[in-house]
Simulated assay, not measured.
Amino acid sequence: MYTPAFSRAASAYRQVSAQSGVESASPHRLVQMLFEGLLQNLNAARGAMLRGEVEAKGVQLGRAVRILEEGLKGGLNREQGGELAMNLWALYDYCIRRLTHANLHNDAQAVEEVVSLVEPVAQGWQAIASTPEAAARQ
């Protein structure tokens, strides 16, 4: 299959741009990026479900689960984070189970449930960035 040169160049640019964005991001920004990617994948999965695109649904849900498992859940320090870290760990674990169910049963409602659970956490994380304390650390 032939891919035009401009498509290959645009793809390479996006990869380099994303990589350099990650390399220069603060830890707080990295978590924001994880939430952004998670919500994008969840919305793409819902769209794929509605269109009956089984493979695309599986890819998007797989990415979402990986962000939850390796990025968000994996980044928690349950010893130092106390009750908040434990609650987030339990939330992410529940979301992973719901997305696994959604993938196996083509359940768009389960994906919507995860979105409704994750969005407030993502918004809270976003709000932290706008506090004066956060601005001083940047």
Rank of each mutant, 00 (worst) to 15 (best):
S17T: 14
A18V: 11
S20N: 11
S20W: 11
S20E: 15
V22E: 14
E23I: 13
S24F: 09
S26V: 12
P27L: 07
H28P: 08
R29T: 14
R29S: 15
M33E: 12
M33A: 12
L34P: 11
L34Y: 12
F35I: 13
G37A: 15
L38I: 14
L42R: 10
A48H: 01
M49V: 01
G52D: 01
G52C: 04
E53S: 08
G58P: 14
V59M: 05
G62Y: 00
R63V: 00
I67K: 07
L68G: 10
L68T: 05
G71R: 04
K73W: 00
E79K: 05
E79C: 06
Q80D: 09
E83K: 10
M86N: 06
L88Y: 10
W89D: 15
W89Y: 13
Y92E: 12
D93K: 07
R97L: 10
R97T: 11
R97V: 09
R98H: 02
N103H: 13
H105A: 06
D107S: 05
Q109A: 12
Q109C: 03
V111R: 01
E112L: 06
S116C: 03
V118W: 03
E119A: 10
E119H: 02
P120I: 06
Q123A: 11
Q126K: 08
A127C: 03
A129W: 10
S130K: 04
S130P: 00
